[in-house]
Design a protein around this nucleic acid. Structure first.
Length: 483
RNA sequence: GGCUCGUUGGUCAAGCGGUUAAGACGCUGCCCUCUCACGGCAGAAUCAGCGGUUCGAUUCCGCUACGAGCUGCCA
């Protein structure tokens, strides 16, 4: 049988990385076996719906390469693929009524107040356990209420005795007492199905074979199983995924600042690196490889090797991985992405490509660029103490001497290419019989005003040009003489 | 509170009864070097605890601890 997986997000805002990982795994499971990956929009809660959220879903799938074979925009006969549209056909209500007839569900007319009275507080948490009050309504009473136009919901009828077992591909069999299962609402008073109900109906109707979801759904899975059983349907294979948490081991939330795919893009991460990283959160390949393209993941992915324990989203490691991707990037491609960041701080007429090249192996994320190159634009104020370097054996005095010696040489020099400058300075080094750094350090300090730079003294001067370089060296001399 | 799930270095993780308990990020040191970074090398650091089962447990079972999730007319 052909594998069919589905990504079924609710359009409620940004793409949470947990959701993205679920989508990724669903895609990989399907594609590993040449199956189909289906997109279904679960918009049964109109109140939570956020405008533009559906676009985010499409854009994310597009950008990440998780191409769906079926979806609202690609109906292959299982549509509509948007639940609010499916509601219109009355399909969910029909199935719910069938359950009512079978005694597996019932109408409930309890209002907010009555439900409120059922509330009890345990350990500071409010808990409502429905008491099956309306289960005992007679057919006539129900009909009378319906005729009177009383608002109603339809609830699943779970017996208080016995147990229910469902099977998860990773966790094995999980059994719970039915008394633990409350009569969840299937159809809401607005006529919409709840997620729980629509999910079961649609997965069956769309012939989904593998359901992948976060393990926050594990507790409700027995109720789903009862639904499948009540309908006489075979349930799909379940694969529950461990949670992705923040560094405090709490559910990754907006507060962390990097909980969504969009957050990460804004922070300068590459799509490929993000996908690669989250693929490895909870799954690992047979070999020790850590770098995967999407296609390579498709080949290597084996859902049996998914880890059950929760994993911390480590931005640090993502940063490292992103840096690795940047280093491996083709230069032109890199430049295209780096240019806007360079232009943010560099307004003068610099050779931006040369600068981009300097920075390529030094950044992990594009916004890092700024701090590396801003000194080209304007020489920062700096402390003359920076001329002192133990390992280079430089002091403020020695630095002043070097700068004063070298200034006329540089004034006389017209070839400001890196090589020429380097040779020139080397000559001085040899004459003085000192280490390279003894000369290079003060010069680099003078032309950059920085402790660390993405390039050596002569490369910086090449970019700066003669006039600016000399200006900065004179300023360095001034600064040192003032001490 | 109840139920369910989880627990290998700080983090991601391999392991699936006998191993010097892989690898990666991060960290530390060294080398390379016109600074830093890159690259190379080295190092510190882990089986939550207690009981079983077994000739032998990180691996199997139980209990405890800790953590998480659920306990919505949200998904």
């Amino acid at each position: 049988m052909k594998i069919r997986t589905r990504f079924a997000p609710s359009p409620t805002g940004r793409m949470h990385v947990g959701n993205l990982r679920t989508a990724l795994y669903e895609y990989l499971i399907a594609k590993h076996e040449n199956g189909d990956f289906i997109l279904r929009i679960e918009d049964t809660d109109q109140e939570r719906e956020v405008e533009g959220a559906v676009d985010i879903i499409y854009r994310t799938l597009e950008k990440t390469g998780l191409k769906h074979d079926e979806g609202p925009d690609k109906d292959k006969g299982f549509g509509p693929y948007v639940q609010s549209e499916r509601v219109k056909s009355g399909l969910y209500m029909e199935y719910a009524k069938k359950l009512v007839e079978q005694g597996d569900a019932y109408y409930c007319f309890c209002d907010k107040e009555r439900l409120e009275s059922l509330k009890q507080v345990v350990e500071g948490k409010e808990i409502v356990v429905y008491d099956k009050h309306c289960l005992h309504l007679s057919k006539e009473e129900v009909q009378a209420n319906l005729d009177a136009g009383k608002p109603f919901v339809i609830r699943q009828n779970v017996p208080n005795e016995g147990t229910t077992t469902f099977h998860d591909e990773l966790y094995g069999d999980i059994t719970v007492d039915n008394s633990e299962l409350d009569d969840m609402i299937l159809i809401k008073s607005d006529g919409f199905p709840t997620y729980n109900f629509a999910n079961v109906i649609d997965d069956h109707l769309m012939e989904i074979t593998h359901v992948v979801r976060g393990n926050e759904y594990i507790s409700s899975s027995p109720k789903y199983q009862r639904l499948y059983d009540a309908f006489g349907w075979e349930s799909p294979k379940y694969i529950h995924l461990g949670l992705i948490t923040d560094e405090n081991h709490k559910k990754l939330s907006k507060r962390s600042g990097h909980s969504s795919f969009e957050d990460l893009l804004e922070q300068g991460f590459l799509t490929e690196a993000i996908i690669n990283y989250i693929a490895l959160l909870g799954w690992s390949p047979e070999d020790n490889n850590e770098f995967f393209t999407l296609d390579e993941l498709v080949k290597a992915f084996d859902y049996k090797k998914i880890n059950k324990s929760p994993s911390v989203f480590d931005v640090n490691k993502l940063r490292w991985m992103n840096g690795e991707y940047i280093k491996k990037m083709d230069f032109d491609e890199f430049y295209k992405m780096a240019e806007p960041y360079l232009k943010q701080v560099l307004k003068k007429d610099f050779d931006l490509k040369k600068i981009a090249n300097m920075v390529k192996t030094r950044i992990e994320v594009f916004p890092d660029i700024k701090d590396h190159v801003d000194f080209f634009e304007t020489l920062p104020e700096y402390d003359p103490e920076m001329y002192v370097h133990k390992k280079m054996k430089t002091t403020m005095e020695s630095s002043l001497e070097v700068l004063k010696d070298i200034l006329p040489v540089l004034e006389a020099c017209d070839d400001y290419s890196n090589d020429a400058l380097y040779q020139t300075l080397l000559k001085y080094v040899e004459e003085k019989e000192v280490k390279n750094g003894y000369v290079m350090w003060p010069i680099r300090t003078a032309v950059s005003g920085k402790q660390m730079t993405p390039a050596g003294a002569t490369e910086i001067m090449e970019v700066l040009g003669k006039e600016e370089s000399l200006k900065r060296i004179r300023k360095g001399i001034e600064l040192l003489e003032g001490k």
